[in-house]
Design a binder for these strands. Structure first.
Length: 544
RNA sequence: UGGGGUAUCGCCAAGCGGUAAGGCACAAGACUUUGACUCUUGCACGCGGUAGUUCGAAUCUACCUACCCCAGCCA
């Protein structure tokens, strides 16, 4: 093991200590999602931590589906999880399932029973709950706690054989009902569930609990470091209890280390919330761009590297923090600015007519595919007397720091001419219908140097498209509580616009981007069937 | 009134007894055919508070304070 590795966070620090003290040869981590929902950006943080720390120590990471609750899990999520992790660019060593270990886990339970460290309990869920005690008062021991080993063995085997109904019996660890840590008060480790498991079918009717299955699965896979989020800190003593008390475990004992999970300001990361939004049709699906799912980010055009960069920028620590969406946005903006092919789009157009340019004339204007790239390729757009410009690029009366087009003011049309707005033509309702402008052919002679440059499209060339601009799903100031979705949903979370884009955009195969004032467009479906051009726009500035 | 955690710039976050990294955001300036991008500069005499140990403390000690998590046969 390379001893020159420098820790960049507390987890790596702990691992380095473990390597010295325990003489570990290989570092193994695991990413253990429950397949009951889609991968979100919070998972991405955990994925990066799991995979990158193993990578740093030249170890490996297993992808383990934590499928111990057949009521919630399904194959579709397994596939989505794998796809998302691959998309992020990580490769797991082994794909495993907690359910693959059911037989092993069963044997671990038998082992505990044989040691007198687990017992079959006949108490109902309500009774167990009422006897657990409170945060400040100790619990009471189950009357079934002192059954003989033989009886426990017989009963547990009968549980497995399907002799009992759901909830009729449980297997509990025999620890300490007066332990100050409630997790240690004889926790249930197996429950009866006559439910079909998506992989095991009807093979089992008893299912292990997370607290039991997780540490033992880690140990079974020879995971050295089991990294999880802060809410499991209280479970660590239990984790260690199982690892210490099961006698049929191989090799090195795994160590659980906790870190703070990701919170993004204004974003609800809970799977329950997202399930509700999808089920009630408030969003298109799990890949709706308003959702913080990886598939949603992918559809918006975020790249895996931007998401990984985000995860490294936010760091790993133990304090509960809420990161601002600016950080993620900065990551994608930085990348797109450097790499994206840029096309001109007018998102919210107003018409302008150039009064001193021939009506039947057009000329090709070459614009760079990406001005930040030296000697970048160029492509042409057509100039004519009828154009669209962005509505926000015009103000009749300029405010103090407005440098774009104003009535009687000058502006440069990107790549083309300097124009002056001579007249604002309004319709009967007083809304702007179009602007009459004139090209200032002798700008040099007149020494006119407009400060602003704006983008534009020729009306006879521009391709009409439907765009969307997304805003927060939550009403301002609202906080999500489960079951509250109907009340807190922001009815204006999506605006549809008619926009225009240059024809060159249609030839691009993927990731068309247009960056301006925080706007960002993706067009993953541009070349898809039905010839429907469909852009989605997201304002990065407003994404909160 | 129990147990487990966390407190360093607006937001993340380094720091591990030798005198406060970095990123995002923000501000000022330069450059610019998108006032974008890029560049340059600025941005905690201060590290939740109060005592103490020390030549020296964000780092050690004690006592406070605030916030987060835990009483599923969920994970």
């Amino acid at each position: 093991m390379d001893s020159n590795i420098v820790a960049s966070n507390f987890i790596e620090q702990a691992i380095i200590e473990d390597i010295k003290e325990k003489g570990l040869k290989k570092i193994v981590t695991r990413f253990p999602p429950e397949p009951n929902g889609y991968t979100h950006i919070g998972h991405a943080k955990a994925i990066c931590i799991d995979f990158l720390t193993a990578e740093k120590f030249k170890g490996y990471t297993n992808l383990r589906m934590d499928d111990t609750n057949p009521n919630k899990e399904s194959e579709v999520y397994v596939k989505a999880l794998m796809e998302d992790i691959k998309w992020l660019g990580f490769k797991w060593k082994n794909l495993t399932y907690a359910s693959d270990y059911y037989e092993f886990l069963y044997n671990c339970a038998i082992d505990l029973i044989e040691q007198g460290k687990a017992f079959v309990c006949d108490l109902s869920a309500e009774e167990v709950s009422s006897m657990r005690g409170t945060l400040t008062e100790p619990g009471k021991e189950s009357p079934y706690r002192n059954r003989s080993i033989e009886e426990n063995l017989k009963l547990f085997k009968e549980m497995r054989a399907g002799k009992y109904a759901d909830g009729e019996k449980t297997l509990r660890a025999k620890i300490d009902m007066s332990h100050p840590n409630i997790n240690m008060r004889d926790p249930v480790i197996y429950r009866i569930l006559h439910v079909k498991h998506f992989r095991q079918g009807d093979k089992w009717c008893i299912y292990p609990m997370y607290d039991f299955a997780h540490p033992l699965s880690d140990a079974y896979e020879q995971v050295t470091h089991s990294l999880c989020s802060l809410e499991f800190e209280d479970h660590r003593p239990l984790y260690n209890w199982f690892v210490d008390n099961c006698r049929i475990l191989p090799g090195v004992k795994p160590r659980q280390i906790e870190f703070a999970r990701l919170n993004i300001d204004g974003t609800v990361m809970s799977k329950r919330y997202m399930h509700e939004l999808v089920q009630k049709g408030y969003v298109d699906g799990w890949d709706d761009p308003r959702l913080p799912t990886l598939s949603g980010f992918r559809r918006k055009g975020y790249t895996p590297s931007a998401i990984r960069e985000f995860c490294t920028r936010i760091g790993v620590a133990k304090s509960n923090s809420i990161v601002q969406p600016h950080i993620l946005e900065a990551c994608i903006r930085e990348e797109l600015n450097k790499n994206a092919v840029r096309v001109v789009a007018v998102l919210d157009p107003i018409k302008i007519n150039i009064t001193n340019y021939p009506a039947n004339k057009t000329e090709k204007i070459a614009i760079s595919n990406n001005p930040t790239i030296e000697n970048s390729k160029k492509h042409n757009i057509l100039f004519s007397n009828e154009l669209y410009i962005e509505r926000e690029d015009f103000m009749i009366e300029p405010t103090n720091k407005f440098f774009r087009l104003t009535l009687n003011g000058y502006v440069r049309l990107m790549g083309a001419y300097i124009i002056k707005c001579d007249e604002v033509v309004k319709d009967k309702d007083g809304n702007i219908d179009h602007l009459n402008c004139s090209i200032v052919y002798d700008a040099k002679e007149q020494n006119i140097k407009p400060k602003g440059t704006i983008h534009w499209l020729s009306r006879n060339e521009a391709v009409k498209i439907k765009t969307r601009k997304f805003h927060s799903l939550l009403k301002e100031g609202e906080v999500y509580e489960s079951g509250m979705v109907d009340k807190i949903i922001n009815p204006n979370s999506m605006e549809e616009h008619i926009s225009f884009i240059e024809p060159f955009a249609l030839k691009q195969k993927s990731n068309l981007q247009f960056i301006r004032n925080g706007y960002y467009i993706e067009d993953s479906r541009l070349s898809k069937k039905d010839d429907r051009v469909f852009l989605e726009t997201v304002s990065l500035k407003d994404s909160k």
